[in-house]
C-alpha cells in the first residue's frame, strides 16, 4: 500500500478522516485498529498490514472501498 491510499488509510485509522464501508467486517476491523493505534501509536505499520491482509483476502469486497478511500 502506498501513496494517497496509504495516507488516507493512516488518516482513517487515526480518526482524522471518517470513512464507513458498506462491509461490516471492514468497519469492525477499522474500529479495532483505531483503538490499537490509540493505545500504541507506533503500531501504524502493522495496522496497515492488517488492512492489506483483509483487502488481499477479499479483493471483490474491498475493491469498492479502495476506490472510495483513494477518492477521499
Amino acid at each position: 500500500m502506498e501513496g494517497k491510499i496509504r495516507d488516507n488509510f493512516i488518516k482513517i485509522l487515526s480518526g482524522e478522516l471518517k470513512y464507513t464501508s458498506s462491509n461490516l467486517a471492514f468497519n469492525m476491523l477499522i474500529s479495532k485498529l483505531q483503538k490499537k493505534i490509540i493505545a500504541a501509536p507506533e503500531s501504524v505499520d502493522s495496522c496497515l498490514e492488517e488492512i492489506e491482509g483483509f483487502v488481499v483476502k477479499y479483493p471483490l469486497i474491498a475493491k469498492v472501498d479502495f476506490v472510495n478511500i483513494a477518492a477521499l
Binding site: K18, Y19, T20, S21, L24, N27, M28, I30, S31, Q34
Partner: peptide
C-alpha cells in the same frame, strides 16, 4: 434510563 433501550457502541459507523 429506560432499560429496554440497549447500550450501543459505534464500530466505525456500525
Amino acid at each position: 434510563i429506560d432499560s429496554g433501550m440497549p447500550l450501543v457502541a459505534d464500530y466505525n459507523g456500525v
